[in-house]
């Protein structure tokens, strides 16, 4: 397959279609608008449904319904819109309905601005809505990974019957890079015996998020926690570069990882031994690889496009075995390569 130039948001949308997504509901908000726009054009071509909902709350509940009926379903939005969806996401997590939620994050809090942001890390990885639940959260670091990870997100959502999230940001969504697109997924291969597809010759399938009797709610929660343990054991994904000889390991995801990599290159030119660990799943978080690097005597510098959220998970993983420093910027600003480089040189 030939490479083409795609914007992150377009690549995400086409990647979803090729992964078998046939239902999209969403509501306009910058900087994710290319996703619904692309879907509105493309879904009719593959006999799928594109629906511009009347609100974010409606969109996520439509995804709940479509996912429950066994369709690969997704919604996308940007930070304030994702906040609005949280009640629905909590219901979907409890009802164990697979779906994919995309956040092309922008600067907050509040209405905020259109600049890129990584300040939705807590919201994505620590629940976001009410109750003890988790999303499988993927963080693309290239436009190619937009395509690859949304395919994986649909697969993992189905495998675990759990909502998955792509946490992107304005820069990742808007930038253009060459991509190779996968072949169209065969929809016949996607089998969901639990889905509400009409009883025909089987018993009733029931999908809800209700546990009025205390013992029912306990059972539901135990089942969820059991599943989250399996996800934590099997689905951690991350990438490392130049960590073997490194004295200092940068920890960054998405846009920040690109900036950190350039800063690492500058520092290496000055003979500084710097490496990079890039979490690809933000939940489950790569705790063990960080603990191992800490045990091997590496120090850490966490780089984020926020005033510090993922750094808390790095500190927990390192657990006082080594030192963790932080460089971040308040929303509205984007860290520069030079700033990160200067911070590296202060430490080493």
């Amino acid at each position: 397959m030939e490479k083409i130039m795609m914007k992150g948001n377009e690549a995400l949308a086409e990647g979803a279609i090729r992964a078998g997504c046939r239902f999209f509901a969403g509501y306009p908000i910058t900087p994710q608008n290319e996703v619904p726009e692309y879907m509105s054009r493309r879904m009719p071509e593959v006999d799928g449904v594109f629906l511009q909902a009347e609100s974010e709350v409606s969109a996520i509940n439509m995804v709940y319904g479509a996912g429950g009926a066994g369709c690969r379903a997704m919604t996308s939005s940007s930070s304030p819109g994702i906040s609005l969806k949280q009640e629905g996401i909590s219901y979907i997590a409890c009802a164990q309905v697979p779906c994919v939620i995309v956040n092309v994050a922008r600067g907050g809090p509040g209405l905020g601005g259109l600049t890129s942001s990584q300040a939705d890390y807590f919201q994505a990885t620590k629940g976001g809505g009410h109750g003890d639940y988790r999303l499988i959260v993927f963080s693309p670091g290239t436009v190619q990974e937009m395509v690859d990870l949304i395919g994986l997100a649909f697969d993992k959502a189905d495998e675990y019957r759990n909502p998955a999230m792509i946490l992107s940001d304005a820069i990742m969504g808007q930038m253009m890079e060459p991509v190779v697109l996968p072949e169209m997924r065969d929809l016949q291969q996607i089998n969901k015996p639990w889905a509400t597809t009409g009883m025909k010759n089987r018993g009733q399938n029931l999908i809800n998020s209700l546990g009025l009797l205390p013992e029912d709610l306990v059972r539901i929660n135990q089942e969820l926690q059991e599943k989250y343990k399996r996800i934590e054991a099997n689905e951690v994904r991350y990438a490392v570069e130049d960590v073997d000889d490194a004295d200092l390991v940068l920890v960054a995801y998405g846009t920040s990882s690109r900036i950190a990599r350039s800063a690492m290159g500058l520092a290496r030119k000055e003979g500084k031994k710097v490496g990079l660990l890039r979490p690809i799943t933000l939940w489950p978080f790569p705790k063990q690889p960080l603990a191992d690097l800490a045990a091997a005597g590496k120090r850490f510098l966490v780089v984020e496009m926020s005033v510090g959220q993922m750094v808390e998970d790095v500190i927990l993983a390192v657990n006082d075995r080594s030192k963790v420093d932080f460089f971040g910027v308040p929303n509205g600003a984007v860290p520069t390569v030079r700033q990160v480089y200067n911070r590296i040189m202060e430490i080493l």
Binding site: I171, M175, R258, I259, S262, A333, V334, T336, R338, Q339
Partner: peptide
């Protein structure tokens, strides 16, 4: 350019 690439316009947001 992206923030991690060098722009001929220089690094405008630095410090």
């Amino acid at each position: 350019t992206a923030p991690w690439e060098t722009s001929p316009a220089g690094e405008v947001s630095e410090d």
